[in-house]
Design a binder for these strands. Structure first.
Lengths: 339, 339
DNA sequence: ATGAAAGCGCTAACAG
DNA sequence: CTGTTAGCGCTTTCAT
């Protein structure tokens, strides 16, 4: 049977309070008993129960995180970093993918509430303000990836999506691409912003990107076959495709390859996020960088601060996107063989 | 403030025992009070504290999982599936990547012990028997991915690695590849087995693969540049490369591309696992399939059974690997342009 | 069918 | 510097 603090106390010949104090380095304990207790703990292989501790301290040292799909490398990387950082701080994380299912989303929130997580990180964009209000009533800090929101107790961390879209458009334009199409998940505000920035640039140049050049689609790896039919829909006269996430871009390139096209010779593709996939794909993917590591670090740090101080203000952090040039976009002027 | 079972009981005008019973559907409660209590719960937005419940039930409904690197898509997919399955059963999982760091591994085990997880899933291969013994002393069920082990309380789920390696070799051989090299992480027994099977086939054909045709390396995305130098080391006369995981294979192809080689024309590459990467890479990757979904499902089911019955036997499940033919291996006979 | 009360393992005053 | 004790929120006998 697992030893408890009582067992340790008994063997060490002290009270449980003393044991508790040496474990938590609180109060004043003489060096002698401290060492002695430590030894007993080691010998008995005693591990304090974090759940009992959580119950009395009312802090679980657990953070919940809700994302649309962990297969999306952007969320994959964020989660991975978060796990590392959290672990450094002795926190653990509970992860949930909701696949854009509102039911699942609510269900997960309740699940996290039951787990009494100290904070919740939200990467999905379905959650209504109502849910956030409900969380606020319980006074639990929230971090929102994606679109900022000025709400009590919520920390927003994002990249300037509009600027990023604008950047992508400018790069394509400078490389001679006048006809483009866009593939993204327009149920997400953040991706709409990217699209808006993209269109805005072209509009400035007198080029209007019509709605039927835009495909809205939740990127899913599993059901890619229907995507093959979609990817070129209405794209007869197009030379470049803007995929609003790297994940989507990789799926796009994959579909294009399956259709027998070559990238960037037949189609140029530009992504958004600058995840691992962008570097590993073939051709490597030109994309808009989000500084994932910095974002994650800042997010965690602010969250920690909110948890510990129990402060209740909101914070909005907007990072600046950057273009990462790789191989998936060709310069149409230099490429005479372009269709 | 978050309502407790006492608040609910008071508002509903019943005892906390009654409330507890309606929540857990235990004992006998009249339909009338049951409904009434349920209503009060809904109105108050009461969520039972799973940590308080865990303390008294001595079950946390949490499972710990330790893998070498979650960036490896094999573990990524397993984890994703596990999370889904676990969630269906109202379990949550705590994930940890150890990056083959023995210190981290031990530290994580202790962490999980403190979290009082109901079971531990181990994907790493460093953990000594000693650690498993220690876990057994606490009577906590263990599931081991990778190499089977016949130990009390541990469930092993694996693919026949030797057979898989053999299969890979046969396929390469049949496609005319007589000179090959191998890249894998030989600190892992499972990958050694794959290598052994691979070599065994070639040996049967009278071809000996010498040790210097084998590169042992932990697949890491971050530091790939040194890998570029390595990938072709001693491979002057080679036509095909066996990477013992898909992750490694993708990194290998990436390095090869950076060196200006084309796949499969300059080098054929075969992987192991059949993860998402295999389908998304360009060229798509010929690989040995592990039935990840089935493995994960079986693993969870057996683990659940062990948790609930508190039975203490061991189980060994070995799945059969299968070759998945894609584009990364060429037939050397048909390909006259081969170097 | 319902409730009283002991206990799960730990923390945090408070007393000594 | 050390120990006593009252919770933390819930489950579970055992009475009633």
């Amino acid at each position: 049977m697992r030893p408890t603090i009582y067992d340790v106390a008994q063997v060490a010949g002290v009270s449980i309070a003393t044991v508790s104090k040496v474990i938590n380095k609180t109060g004043n304990i003489s060096e002698k008993t401290r060492l002695h207790v430590k030894n007993v703990i080691k010998e008995m292989e005693y591990e304090p129960s974090s759940i009992a501790s959580a119950l009395s301290k009312k802090k679980t040292k657990t953070i919940g995180i809700i994302v649309p799909n962990i297969a999306n490398p952007f969320y994959g990387e964020i989660t991975r970093l978060l796990e590392q950082i959290a672990n450094r701080h002795d926190y653990s994380i509970i992860l949930s993918s909701t696949y854009n299912h509102p039911e699942r989303e609510k269900q997960y929130i309740r699940f996290l509430l039951q787990k009494e997580v100290d904070a919740i990180i939200i990467g999905t964009e379905l959650l209504s303000d109502q849910v956030i209000k409900k969380l606020n009533k319980r006074n639990i800090p929230i971090a929102k990836l994606s679109v900022p929101i000025e709400e009590k107790n919520v920390i927003s961390v994002t990249t300037d999506n509009y600027a990023g879209g604008y950047l992508a458009a400018r790069y394509l334009y400078e490389n001679g691409h006048l006809t483009t199409k866009i593939i993204g998940d327009l149920t997400r505000q953040s991706e709409c912003d990217r699209v808006a920035g993209f269109r805005a640039f072209y509009k400035e140049k007198g080029i209007v990107i019509s709605d039927d050049q835009i495909i809205s689609r939740e990127p899913l790896f599993e059901e890619e076959s229907p995507f093959i039919d979609l990817v070129l829909k209405g794209a007869e006269k197009v030379t470049a495709i803007f995929s609003t996430t790297d994940f989507q871009a990789v799926l796009t390139m994959n579909a294009l390859h399956e259709l027998g096209y070559s990238i960037p010779n037949d189609y140029s593709v530009i992504g958004f996020d600058n995840t691992m996939y962008a570097k590993l794909s073939q051709p490597t993917l030109t994309t808009i960088e989000q500084p994932i590591r910095e974002m994650t670090e800042l997010l965690f740090q602010q969250l920690l601060c909110a948890i510990e101080t129990e402060e209740m203000t909101y914070k909005v952090n907007v990072f600046t996107p950057r273009l990462i040039e790789r191989q998936s976009v060709c310069n149409i002027h230099k490429n005479s063989s372009y269709r």
